[in-house]
Design a protein around this nucleic acid. Structure first.
Length: 458
RNA sequence: GUGGUUGUAGCUCAGCUGGUUAGAGCGCUGGAUUGUGGUUCCAGAGGUCGCCGGUUCGAACCCGGUCUUCCACCCCA
């Protein structure tokens, strides 16, 4: 009956070394979330379908994993509906729960449900898996972790400033220097659309604009034409592609360009404040770049839009993103609560650190000391040593059986154990233990009465 | 959701226009080495060639379906 095991499409197992590396990233992210004053929450892995459906657009609904009702779920379904083969209508009848699609909507739901217990502004972070019935691709899975930090209940632009600092702090500690935080503002995009006379095509316009670095100016203009944007509008938008110089220089040009648009001017002012303030405060290793072509998450972002690009030379899309959304909780009945959030792309950060060999070597040393097992009597003495080491915070183990020495040494080698301890009959007699340095190759003998000496030299 | 791509030993991959017992390297097990790993030498185990069906005297190879992998698009983290 042996069947070949397999895992579901788009899912992954994580082996010890991978978990260690992922934890390394998450611990650093988490620590900075905490020092910036964010508090952790967790929400269920599945929600009522009503909570999720319709929040991510039509495409999103398709990508939500639905959970089949329990029991005889077809019994109550109308026979006519069943034979109509209308999947969308039928789904609503046989599925009332769905897997979490992101962390933002459940967070909005959380805020609304707990509004009376929360002190605003509420700063929360959340690191949990989410699921999407997407077709997998490189760096895209059907199950993946999101690391989000959001602030709700404050519309101060200082939050924008702070979140850029948070990105900077995390990537600096990860030794991932040279990342670029790209910054844009939905109001600027709206202003541009207004000035070129295509306000009603804002989404089409920005989605096309967003592809500039991918398909070039020609590709963008072609897509705009296909979406029915007028030639004059396309012409008027042309100066956007030629924006260059420092952030402040670009903002000066934008200010001019958008002078006739109230909302556009507001957006430029917001960007100016963020750029100016961060200029005064300084960043450790990240670079801040205005990028008017940045247009992610337009369905809900209303102000700032962030995206973090990996250092130059690394072929990787964005490793983080976020933005401000003025009315996220509105859909659940709580008006006028402004929110802003950022997200870290754990899987992609992992790939980048791997490529640049930035993981510390010590991550692989899961066991520091292994005692070779020579037999019952020797093992007992070894176990006493192991206990002492463990009490001192040193990860130590005794090989569980008196297998051949070669086998035990090989095991230590495969597990990357830096020190092997030998207590055989010779050592028993001398009340000592021999420590073999598996990296250098040398050996040293210590007395069992002065274990501290060994611990100090570790 | 659309188009393409991949699947052979634990891993990475060979395998000619269909032809008899399907190979290599690494890893694994045992030995050279009864107290020494990482280097060396010797021997051995391990595969329903993703799965189902079809064509053929004969299929890892050709055809159809299905699952999976990766890539592009859509979208997105």
């Amino acid at each position: 009956m042996a069947q070949k095991p397999s895992i579901a499409k788009g899912t992954r197992d994580f082996s010890p070394s991978e978990v260690n590396k992922r934890n390394y990233i998450m611990d650093i992210v988490k620590n900075h979330f905490k020092t910036f004053g964010f508090q952790p929450i967790e929400t269920p892995s599945f929600e009522n379908s009503d909570t999720l459906m319709g929040k991510y657009g039509e495409e999103g609904d398709r990508l939500i994993f639905k959970i089949l009702n329990s029991g005889d779920y077809l019994r109550k379904v109308d026979g006519e509906l069943l034979s109509s083969k209308d999947s969308n209508k039928l789904t609503a009848k046989i599925s009332e729960k769905a897997l979490r699609y992101d962390l933002t909507v459940p967070f909005a739901r959380y805020v609304v449900m707990h509004q009376n217990e929360i002190s605003f502004p509420f700063k929360r972070y959340q690191i949990q898996p989410v699921w999407r019935a997407d077709r997998p691709q490189k760096g895209r899975f059907r199950e993946f972790f999101q690391c989000d930090a959001d602030v709700v209940g404050s519309n101060s632009l200082l939050q924008e400033v702070e979140l850029v600092q948070l990105y900077d702090a995390v990537f600096t500690e990860l030794k991932l220097t040279g990342v670029t935080v790209k910054l844009n503002n939905r109001k600027v995009l709206a202003g541009i659309a207004e000035v070129i006379g295509e306000s009603d095509k804002l989404i089409d316009f920005t989605v096309a604009l967003d592809k500039l670095d991918k398909i070039g100016i020609e590709g963008v203009t072609k897509e705009m034409r296909e979406k029915g944007i007028s030639e004059t509008a396309i012409e008027k938008a042309a100066p956007l592609y030629a924006l260059n110089g420092t952030n402040l220089e670009q903002l000066a040009v934008l200010k001019e360009l958008l002078a006739s648009s109230e909302i556009g001017t507001k957006g430029v002012e917001e960007l100016h404040f963020i750029v100016k303030t961060l200029g005064d405060l300084g960043l450790q290793s990240a670079k801040l770049d205005i990028d008017v072509t940045l247009a992610r998450g337009l369905n809900y972002y209303t102000g700032a839009i962030f995206e973090v690009a990996a250092p130059e030379g690394v072929r990787m899309g964005s490793i983080g993103g976020g933005g401000r959304y003025d009315d996220l909780t509105g859909i659940f009945g709580l008006k006028d609560v402004s929110g802003i959030g950022i997200s870290f792309g754990l899987d992609r950060i992992y790939l980048v650190l791997e490529e640049l060999e930035l993981f510390p070597e010590t991550i692989e040393n899961s066991l520091q000391v292994l005692c070779v097992n020579f037999g019952d009597k020797e093992a007992l003495v070894s176990l006493k040593l192991v206990s002492q080491l463990r009490k001192n915070g040193v990860s130590a183990d005794l090989y569980p059986s008196s297998a051949k020495m070669q086998k035990q040494m090989k095991y230590a080698n495969n597990r990357n154990v830096p020190y092997v301890v030998l207590i055989g009959d010779k050592e028993l007699e001398a009340n000592s233990f021999v420590v073999r340095d598996m990296v250098q190759g040398g050996q040293k003998e210590y007395s069992l009465d002065s274990i501290e000496q060994f611990i100090e030299e570790l």
